[in-house]
Design a protein around this nucleic acid. Structure first.
Lengths: 236, 236
DNA sequence: ATTTAATGTGTATAAAATACACATTAGTTA
DNA sequence: TAACTAATGTGTATTTTATACACATTAAAT
């Protein structure tokens, strides 16, 4: 059931025909990635007739014996096979008619993963990375959920070292700046950016130089190990 | 049913005996007030045996035909008769065993209300204001919910004019500062506080003076009308 | 008239954010 | 091998924001 993309719809139809209708609980994951100087989000083709042709976020019903956080973790694991993911709860969306098959309250999480270092489990070619800036319309209220999570990420990114989840182990300051520019959707001054990052002391100078660049190579850095732990947010 | 304090328990017992157990959805409201230079929170005596003697937040199951935001609004309205309340969603708590009667995922909201200008609907003397700083133990995971919401309020308070919900229409800068000190649980420098507030331009000088004080009276201010709207958060 | 308990106000200093330019380096190409 | 290209690496001046701190003034109470 876990790997059946039709699980959500099927379960909802059953629920919505029960005499005493109750509220279903789901989680939706806004999974951000970074590729080609561009912030991406992982979307799946909607399996609902109402939304045919539209993409939606990855989500699923929460199981009765599963913590809310654990459900979002499961969804990520199913699709990316990642164990040690960064996941953070953002907001819960609970309008009565937000789901056409019945009443579903959904809690949105966002996640950051390194696209290159993990293969997706693509089933039926339904799952793909999309440029965040090109997304116009999504199924359900998922556009709003995406925007909420993006705003949240933009706020978080200069305060905490969450970006490390999008970076390779070793990277130059230019590469790091490009990730920030993609997330914030605005260019940054190189000298001021470097000053800000230096103040945070998140990085370790590797005393190695870039390679494979057709210009003067930059120094390579990595995040200090103490900033690499993800874990869950404490609450669930 | 809405005004029956046993509603929550009764409904949950019914749910938990259904063959196909599903997840119940509730909201819990952290209702902050301000009195005697002290930040208060509105608590109700828990009606569960497991938590006898303990207080809990005001909460209720969300009805199938009710938006999530609307549920929190209803709970406030039932108990305070306030229509135009400030309410903001903070976090959703969804551990499997957080509720002893069954699986309940709850979304926490916080609210700020002016204690003096509204009578509570106290039923059976079960509902009371408590000093936030004195609270040791609450039913369920409500202590954690309270702490999460308090942290959220503390963050919000210097950025947005939410405090107006705790203030009388007219107030002196000293009174305003006392509210900030109660929320932040730390003393503030008077000159710097006034400078910060002045920069925000939230206040209107009323050209009136305090009264009924046994010392030099201060000027009175009010929040500019455009900062008084509450409404709901846009999402639900 | 004196005491009390507050109000109202400004400046100096430190810290943080911003704007901005040039010499250096390695690879590529003519 | 010289010149070109496209990047790296770096510092200072300016503005803005945050902080620390003290004294004359006012109205009421005694």
């Amino acid at each position: 059931m876990a790997n059946n993309p039709n699980f959500k719809t099927a379960a909802l139809e059953k629920i919505s025909h029960l005499e005493y209708f109750k509220i279903a609980v789901s989680v939706d994951c806004v999974i951000f990635g970074y590729l080609d100087k561009d912030l991406k989000v992982l979307l799946i083709q909607s399996d609902l007739e109402e939304f045919s042709g539209l993409n939606s976020l990855l989500g699923d019903l929460v199981r009765p014996d599963e913590d809310l956080d654990a459900a979002s973790y499961r969804i990520l694991k199913e699709r990316t096979d990642l164990d040690d993911v960064f996941l953070q709860q953002v907001h819960t969306f609970g309008k009565v008619n937000r789901h056409p098959s019945g009443r579903v309250v959904t809690t949105a999480y966002y996640s950051l993963i390194n696209i290159n270092s993990h293969k997706l489990k693509i089933i039926d070619n339904d799952l793909n990375w999309h440029s965040v800036k090109n997304i116009r319309k999504l199924a359900f209220d998922h556009k709003e959920i995406l925007e909420t999570c993006l705003a949240h990420l933009q706020q978080e990114v200069m305060e905490t070292p969450v970006v490390h989840n999008l970076m390779p182990e070793k990277f130059s300051l230019r590469e790091l700046q490009e990730v920030y520019e993609a997330i914030l959707a605005s260019p940054l001054d190189r000298r001021n950016f470097r000053k800000k990052i230096a103040v945070k002391q998140w990085l370790q100078d590797l005393n190695e130089m870039e390679d494979n660049v057709s210009h003067r190579p930059g120094k390579l850095y990595k995040f200090k190990p103490k900033y690499l732990k993800n874990g869950f947010s404490r609450k669930s």
